[in-house]
Design a protein around this nucleic acid. Sequence first.
RNA 1: GCACCCGUAGCUCAGUUGGAUAGAGCACAGGAUUCCUAAUCCUGGAGUCGCAAGUUCGAAUCUUGCCGGGUGCGCCA
Length: 584
Amino acid sequence: MKQQIADRISKNLENFFKEKGISPEINPTRPPDPSKGDYTLNLAMPLGKVLKKPPLLIAETIAEILAEDKKTFESVEAVKPGFINMRLANSFLEDQFDSFVSSPSLLEASKSETPKRVIVDYSSVNIAKQMHVGHLRSTIIGDVIARIIESLGDKVIAQNHLGDWGVPMAMVIRKAESAIDKAIAENQNPEDVLDTPMLEAFYKEATAECKSDPVEAAACHDYLIRLQNQEQKLIDYWQIIKKVSMRDVYKIYKLLGVRLEPENERGESFYADMLPEIVEKIQQKGLIEISDGAKCVFLDEFKAKDGTPLPVIIQKSDGGYNYATFDLTALHYRTNTLKADRIIYVTDARQALHFKQVFAVARKAGLVPEKVMLEHVTFGSILGEDNKPLKTRDGENVKLAELLDEAIKAAYQVVDDKNNTLPEEYKQQVAKMTGIGAVKYADMAQNRNNDYVFSFERMLALSGNTAPYLQYAHARICSIFRKTDFIPSDAKVIISAPEEKELILKAMEFPLTVKTVSEDLKPHTLCAYLYDLSTLFSSFYTNCRILDCENENQKHSRLALSRAIQRIIKKGLGLLGIEAPEEM
RNA sequence: GCACCCGUAGCUCAGUUGGAUAGAGCACAGGAUUCCUAAUCCUGGAGUCGCAAGUUCGAAUCUUGCCGGGUGCGCCA
């Protein structure tokens, strides 16, 4: 829409600009207050300098030229410092809206002309640990980023960088060994005997023991060597443990509506064999120095506490590898094998320095060509009441499964209260959609860079700028269409009330909003947009009768408008990974 | 010590190529339902945009300094 207006303006002012020998950028925006106009142009102020004339005079000249284009503008007005306020002709708006609505995806206007291959690395759960609130943000923000980029025509390859290798795994295997053997001896499937809480307990026991008992520590180290050498017996145990653990993870993904699948799993184990080769590549570039026995890359731009250069450790003094090497190897795989054009990491802000270093080393070592975009999407921490990273009273992480369960229960209370004539089964479905939606939306509706203090009250609030508000607007529209046979596919929207005009103007901002999120990767912009749109719809709904209005044409027009808004809300919520119930 | 993030209404937060009177929600006060879902809508009060200087027609936004909070900084991920 904005583009269409900009095109019209450019065309009208072509001669004027040519005369003056200038070609300024045309960027019409919505004014702060609708009483000023539908769109405004902030052009005369900057031109005032160039042309050495009072901005208001320039604005008046431009307004006069534009006002002649009666097809596009109802009126154009120059105002105090030099703003040019435009009121669009209804017929122009109606035509624009008509072609906007006829796009099946509603996003045609902003699709990329040259599809890219985009890697999104998110969730990154650890094997043998239950998912907790700490995994929530990466998982849902990553999922949304993937959905949005994909919706604009790019090829998204999601990568779940599992923590499934190294010392922790060795320790769990050592502890789980006897339980697995016992199950097999008793003719049971070990996968049925084990569960994630057990694995987590094994891990905790082992860490405690290794800390206090050198013999145990040595034993675990022995397991690590055997695992790294891929001894079949250990690999078998490892497979079982991984399967048990991921079984629970997928339950939560499914509940959350997150689309990660086994095919997206590229854990540390996947890269284990490639590590030496990557170290070799970096070494060949002459970047490696030995420091305290470890292979390091020193980069001038990173300094340590004492001002000395900060190393990126590529290989530890004991010959082992750590996370920088895994990430460098993954970068190499993603550019060379997966042919990525853009690689996006969704992890918390505390890893910012780590990724800066890894990206810098990867560029310097030629593992990633310059044209490949590397982005770290950071987010703040979820804090407890004490403003420290959230823990339960016993110092445990809050389990995601329990949190989500509680959200659904709270949502059920509301559904039951507000609409208890709905069939029981449907009430439960709605509770799930609104409860899960509320949790996800509460997290995504604010700028991801900020920390926030966790509270059920906040996450489960069902009024104001929340998922249920958007879902409710959607359900009300669907309700209208249950009461009519009319299908508004070929009805054109005719503007007859100010609420309709505002709604149409906002609706047509949808493609640009999505496009913006695909670039700056800030989903809260889309949340804010959908909330604005829903607010305008609610206002329209209470002030304009739809089914029983003055005449058939108006009824059809309003139905067509309602249908369009319903499609946008559904599509928008879909991009946020939130479901839109038809009744609630 | 150095680096990054943050500081906007009582609370939670929006607000970018610098633009008009700084906006929402929650909370608070009042009003709206013979009518398409009131999980709604309408009206109202509420602000030294952390502080100070600078850049200019114009600064919450850009620059510098300071104050306050958080995070990170060699073999954990």
